[in-house]
Simulated scan of single mutants.
Amino acid sequence: MTGAIYLDYNATTPVDPAVTDAMLPLLTSAFGNPSSDHHYGTQPRAALTRARAQVAALAGASAEEIVFTGSGSEADNLALRGVVLASGVDRPHVITQRTEHPAVLHACEALRRWHNADVTLLPVDSEGLVEPADLAAALTERTVLVSIMLANNETGALQPIGELSRVTRERGVLFHCDAAQAVGKIPVDVTELGIDLLTVVGHKMYAPKGIAALYVRAGVRLEPLVYGGGQERGSRAGTEPVAMAVGLGAAADLAATDLASGGHHRIRQLRDRLHASLAEGLPGRVTLNGPLDARLPNTLNISIDGILGHDLLAAQSGIAASTGSACHSGAHEPSPVLTAMGLGTSRSLAALRLSLGRWSSEEDVDRAAELIVSAARAVATR
């Protein structure tokens, strides 16, 4: 990549050239409808079947348990609304947590408004983690679904999904996990996690935007969001976007190879190198937000004392990164995630999310540290 040093892989990833190469035939010669019985449907149908198996293998699932969707938000909505409407419970109860992705939080709010659902938002501790005891205490006889993300998009915090799902299994409650930020970055196995539904997102793992998947454990019933021709075994109507699905499948294969070769350990070393360089360059001013160990290997969320995160990024165009704050009518507000963790306003507004990826290098990390340190010193003296 050219231009600013890219440290925003949690926002989106570049499309891997190998993914593009895999997609091209499905955009040109193999253009047919995979549902067609004639010659032009044969290659797209086979490509779709292969892509489904590739995604399933990365998540430890079976191919028939993968439903392709248009986005992670759609997959989350299909999981939540699909389970609630299929449950037949008069006043269904859904549990999630305060630092969940807006796709889940807003879907829960819609279920409350339109389907008479009760929604419980679990608190998190100072590292952004849910206590299994809090989940156990929140379960009721009307609870039909728990939805807890695997990895937080801002801090990288890894929830204790295995412990949480054990609580729900004992009560016969379905468990959904948004793993958009985790799949491809760390090993993920739905059987080991003990979950029933899992969201996978293409543009977080070097596939294009506009493709995602929902793992649905065999036997779990969902009411579809989209009705029509019965594609995706009735879970999501509409002619399948074969090229996009093939891109996701190719990305899944690349991720599996990278994980097997220890690529995530290389990224962790770069992340820690960046953290150490920033702490050395700004002694006493750098504070980690989120867990030290139980987090994604690529994610570094820090607050730099004496500055605002958006001021630092505005002063330094040489890096592309994110803050956790949102701007409304010219005023910046603290990240809801960091606020839920109990961080004060000044620390939250000082936060930077630096996320690394496949093409991050030692040279990038060292230069980024220099630029951030220089900008932080300059902004603090204004």
Rank of each mutant, 00 (worst) to 15 (best):
M1R: 04
Y6C: 14
L7R: 02
D8H: 11
P14S: 13
D16S: 08
V19C: 10
M23Y: 11
L24S: 12
L26Q: 14
G32I: 02
N33L: 10
H39T: 15
Y40S: 15
A47G: 15
Q54A: 15
G60Y: 02
S62H: 13
A63T: 07
E64F: 06
E64A: 15
E65W: 01
E65Y: 01
G70K: 00
A75K: 09
A75F: 05
L80R: 09
R81C: 15
G82A: 08
G82N: 09
G82I: 12
V84A: 08
A86C: 12
S87H: 07
V94G: 10
I95F: 08
T96V: 07
R98F: 01
H106P: 01
H106S: 15
A107S: 13
E109I: 05
A110N: 02
A110R: 06
L111I: 10
V119H: 03
V119R: 03
L121G: 08
L122S: 07
P123R: 01
S126N: 07
E131L: 00
R142C: 08
T143N: 08
V146N: 10
S147T: 10
E154Q: 08
A157C: 03
L158V: 10
I161P: 12
V167N: 04
L174I: 13
F175D: 09
C177Y: 01
C177K: 00
A182F: 01
A182S: 07
G184A: 07
L193Q: 10
I195T: 08
V200S: 09
G202I: 03
M205S: 11
Y206V: 10
I211G: 12
V216T: 10
E223F: 02
L225H: 02
V226M: 05
G229V: 04
E232K: 00
G234V: 05
S235W: 05
S235G: 07
V242N: 04
A243D: 14
M244S: 11
G249K: 00
A251G: 10
A252D: 09
D253S: 13
A255R: 06
A255E: 09
L259V: 11
I267G: 07
R268Q: 11
R268L: 11
L278W: 01
L282A: 06
L282F: 03
T287Y: 02
P291Y: 06
L292D: 15
L292V: 14
R295E: 06
L296T: 07
L300P: 03
S303T: 09
S303H: 01
D305E: 14
G306P: 04
L313E: 09
L313W: 01
A315L: 04
S317L: 06
S317P: 12
A321D: 11
T323S: 11
G324H: 07
S329F: 06
P336S: 12
L338T: 05
A340M: 06
L343I: 09
L343E: 15
T345V: 15
R347G: 11
L349A: 14
A351W: 03
L354V: 13
S355N: 13
E363I: 08
R367P: 07
L371W: 10
A376Q: 07
V379M: 07
A380H: 03
R382N: 14
